[in-house]
């Protein structure tokens, strides 16, 4: 009797599990697994103009690697910029996120208003903000250009006109990076303070008894270890997206970005949009190569973070 009940219970349970997960899994097989297998296959073929495919051995890989290693080639430049972008974000943003989050967590002056305002880029469409930004800083009619010429700063010494931050070799990359950082605080300033909130006040109190008295100590001894999982999630997903993240370059420049602001994500988006279809297999081959490089790195970093990061017992 009991066994029967148990078995019927098991049946219901199996049915329950299957009913909830089978549909997404089927979708996964089609739109992820199959799509990517097809992409891998593509990497080994040439697509002719009439649409027929021809086996190409490693030709596409060789073309991509040549592009990567040739000096001044945009592929190499894109990869360099992608890596730079990730590292700069890491070095500048992470500490800022943490300090600002700490301040919000400590309920600093105007903390409520600040948390609303920092979400503005998310509330207002990212695209709208981006277009506003471009119209605001770039071009002679842009308010910022007017400000520059009024204050006589950022003046191009050759022409005497205010420089266009988006089209000056010295400032363009920095501007795109700045924009990326500038709009990125919203989510972080919700997620990190929320993670910090989960630290019980007892822990902090007992730490204070132990002599923790300032932000550095509190951050280093209490907060960092506790929010480490959140932190490492962002580190890892950021690293995983290193060559797919186009940032805002596509919206800034459409398909006319100068090479020196290219990154991998943008390079791909641009070529899929602009180049002829015979280029696609080369892109697929390059993608496969980069996946083969980045994936082990990500897995290694994750492993290292888990192994050598501060111990975390937070559920």
């Amino acid at each position: 009797m009991q066994r029967k009940k148990a078995s019927s219970h098991n049946k219901v349970r199996t049915l329950f599990i299957l009913s909830l997960i089978s549909y997404p899994l089927i979708l996964f097989l089609i739109f992820y697994v199959f799509v990517n297998l097809n992409s891998i296959r593509m990497a080994f073929f040439n697509v002719k103009l009439d649409g027929t495919w021809e086996f190409a051995y490693f030709d596409n890989f060789i073309t991509f690697i040549k592009g990567l290693t040739e000096t001044g080639n945009v592929i190499g430049m894109s990869m360099y910029n992608s890596i730079r972008m990730y590292l700069i974000n890491l070095v500048i943003c992470m500490p800022l996120y943490l300090i600002f989050s700490y301040m919000l967590f400590k309920q600093c002056f105007m903390h409520k208003a600040i948390r609303i305002v920092v979400m503005l880029p998310q509330i207002i469409s990212g695209f709208v903000i981006c277009m506003l930004f471009v119209n605001f800083i770039s071009g002679p009619d842009a308010p910022l250009s007017m400000l520059f010429s009024h204050l006589k700063i950022f003046i191009d010494d050759k022409s005497g006109m205010p420089i266009d931050l988006l089209y000056n070799e010295k400032t363009a990359f920095a501007t795109t990076i700045f924009y990326g950082i500038w709009i990125s605080f919203g989510t972080s300033l919700i997620v990190y303070p929320n993670a910090m909130k989960e630290i019980s006040s007892e822990v902090i109190e007992s730490a204070q008894l132990d002599g923790v008295s300032n932000m550095f100590q509190e951050m280093f001894y209490i907060i960092l270890p506790l929010i480490f999982p959140t932190l490492s999630t962002f580190l890892i997903t950021g690293l995983a997206g290193i060559f797919t993240e186009a940032g805002t370059i596509l919206a800034f420049y459409e398909t006319n970005a100068p090479d020196y602001v290219h990154n991998m994500g943008y390079y791909y988006a641009k070529l899929v949009k602009n180049a002829n279809e015979t280029t696609y297999p080369m892109l697929a081959a390059g993608g496969l190569l980069m996946t083969l490089i980045v994936a082990p790195v990500v897995i290694l970093v994750r492993h290292l973070l888990e192994k050598y990061g501060p111990s975390t017992e937070v559920q």
Partner: peptide
């Protein structure tokens, strides 16, 4: 396996599958 697969999908970048996705879709 599914849970780990999810993590793998999240952290392993698949780059350049857009043309293939277009064909399939």
């Amino acid at each position: 396996f599914i849970y780990n697969l999810g993590i793998v999908v999240m952290i392993v970048p698949i780059i350049g599958s857009l043309p293939s996705a277009m064909m399939v879709r």
